[in-house]
Design a binder for these strands. Structure first.
Length: 549
DNA sequence: AAAAAAC
């Protein structure tokens, strides 16, 4: 069997590989490294998790050992679709270059130019970049690409998905025709084919068998959920998520929870935090520094639950994730494979549990036909019912918590988006028998305290002095205690809701009184609800709105 | 139909 030592790598590079504990190359490494070392173009068709990064890093370093970088003229270029992937490649580079004097710069967005400029000016051997920032540097005249000897395109199909192909073509054209190109893609879409035909010269095609789409060591499960009412879908899914996580118990050492939308990443993350889970969000709208920090702590194991958009679906190397949860089924079947591929890596066991609602039917059938098998249906842990079980909320209710539960159930009705007043002025439950509506609300409120009701309070002690959280259902607290970023979401949502129907409805209900209501509103609010922060904030803004209209 | 990436 081939060893790294058989591969004609530079001794300094080889020693770093050995020091990192690697002896035997993966198939793609064994196949791609030799032609790359010969200076040939390589077209690698491989998924992430196959050892792709080293398959271009090691030959690059070896080839670059001859020669030196000149100011502003990098000698090689690695392009990645996301900042995190670029950072990861940079880490790999550091690892394997540590015994050499080769230098690199990481050019990604979201961070200041200063440091990057400095490195470029000094001259680096390798630029690792996302396309936008690279072109930005170029357009500012900071960067000369005519000395690029080796160019790597990583995750080309994802670049395609993300609309980067024009940028990639442009960058290709800025580099010398004589460069060596190493090009990696998980699939060969027609557009990818076209690019490779245009920019690669007689490439050696290296293909690793498609990852068993669903690694045998990954246990998959699908939890079917039918929410009681469509407008409760999100809340129900959060309940189910918590139940499923808790159902996994100790087996779940850490997990990535995927959502399709950034806003849901924030909401789910915040919701889990509120229930005492060690959770943090990651998606493209967050500060790069926060993204980096969050990912770092997740890797270190100090963060247990990473709530993620598909920014984290592919390529992120987090060695030991015990679980992947799909809060949303991905819309693209491919992404399902990528997402669950975050667990069960390196031969470890993994579990992938997905939440399914009827609206996901299209996505599910796409996934199941891609992986050529049905995802085994699972059940919710004890206390929950599924399938027809319109409400997945537990039917049982802990009497000891009765008072709190009842109260929580009531105040929760509109708490999640500050929609108290609109929903309150709505004709009560005209579409539902009242008892049922009550029943769907009370159980969660009752269940929540039985879980970790005290934890959120411990986590947010600074709020205690301002309000009386112990009298409020957990679901209600965070809106006030939430970080500013999320508050913005919440208030947007509530603003929209008011704009759409809340106020209109109330106008109908209350007639002209509404307009002149400003001074009276606080009174009715204080009588009907706890005068918490949420309510008074809401009262303020709505009062102002009303006064203007 | 959504996310990601430049400022």
């Amino acid at each position: 069997m081939t060893k790294f030592s058989d591969l004609k790598l530079d001794p300094k590079v080889l020693s770093a590989v050995a020091e990192a504990g690697y002896e035997t190359p993966t198939p793609i490494q064994a196949d791609a490294i030799p032609p790359a070392l010969e200076g040939k173009d390589v077209l690698g068709i491989a998924q992430t998790g196959t050892g792709k990064t080293a398959s271009f890093t090691l030959p690059m370093l070896t080839l670059l050992r001859r020669g030196r970088a000149r100011a502003r003229m990098p000698r090689s270029l690695v392009l990645c679709p996301t900042r995190e992937l670029a950072a990861q490649v940079a880490e790999n580079f550091d690892l394997y270059a540590k015994n050499t004097k080769l230098t690199r710069a990481l050019l990604i967005g979201g961070v200041s130019f200063g440091e990057q400029d400095k490195l470029i000016d000094k001259g680096v051997d390798v630029l690792i970049a996302t396309p936008g920032r690279l072109l930005d540097h170029f357009e500012r005249g900071k960067l000369i690409l005519t000395d690029v000897k080796i160019m790597v395109v990583d995750e080309a199909d994802r670049m395609l998905d993300m609309g980067f192909i024009p940028d990639i073509e442009r960058i290709f054209q800025l580099t010398p025709f004589t460069r060596q190109t190493l090009f990696f893609s998980a699939t060969m879409a027609p557009e990818i084919e076209r690019i490779t035909n245009t920019f690669l010269h007689a490439p050696v095609r290296v293909e690793v068998a498609r990852q068993a789409t669903t690694g045998a060591n990954i246990t998959q499960k699908l939890i079917e959920v039918t929410p009681a009412r469509r407008d409760q879908t999100a809340k129900t899914k959060r309940e189910v998520l918590r139940a499923v996580i808790e159902g996994e118990g100790e087996a779940c050492t850490n997990a990535i929870i995927f959502c399709n939308r950034k806003v849901d990443v924030d909401i789910v993350s915040k919701s889990l935090q509120k229930y005492g889970f060690d959770a943090a969000p990651i998606h493209g709208d967050l500060d790069q520094s926060q993204r980096t920090r969050t990912l770092e702590s997740f890797r270190e194991g100090t963060l247990k639950f990473l709530i993620a958009s598909d920014v984290a679906a592919r390529g992120l190397d987090v060695p030991a994730v015990s679980h992947v949860f799909n809060y949303d089924l991905p819309m693209h079947a491919e992404d399902y494979v990528h997402r669950i591929g975050r667990t069960g890596r390196a031969g470890r066991k993994g579990a992938a549990i997905s939440i399914y609602v009827p609206a996901d039917e299209k996505f599910l059938s796409g996934i199941e036909s891609l992986i050529e098998q049905p995802i085994p249906r699972g059940e919710l842990p004890e206390g929950f019912e599924i399938s027809e079980g319109a409400k997945t909320a537990p039917v049982k209710r802990d009497d000891a918590k009765g008072g709190r539960g009842g109260r929580g159930g009531r105040s929760r009705s509109g708490s999640s988006s500050n929609g108290e007043r609109p929903s309150r002025s709505r004709k009560p439950r005209e579409d539902k028998p009242q008892p049922e509506a009550v029943e769907t609300k009370a159980p969660e409120a009752a269940k929540a305290p039985s879980q970790k009701v005290d934890t959120p309070e411990e986590q947010q002690p600074e709020r205690k002095s301002e309000r009386t959280p112990e009298r409020q259902a957990p679901e209600q607290r965070p809106a006030a205690a939430a970080p500013a970023r999320h508050d913005a979401n919440e208030s947007d949502e509530s603003r929209n809701r008011r704009a759409r129907g809340g106020r209109g409805r109330r106008d109908r209900d209350n007639g002209p009184n509404v307009v002149g209501m400003g001074d009276h509103v606080p009174d009715f609010l204080t009588r009907s609800f706890r005068p918490g922060l949420i309510d008074s904030d809401e009262a303020m803004s709505e009062t102002e709105d009303s006064a203007e209209s």
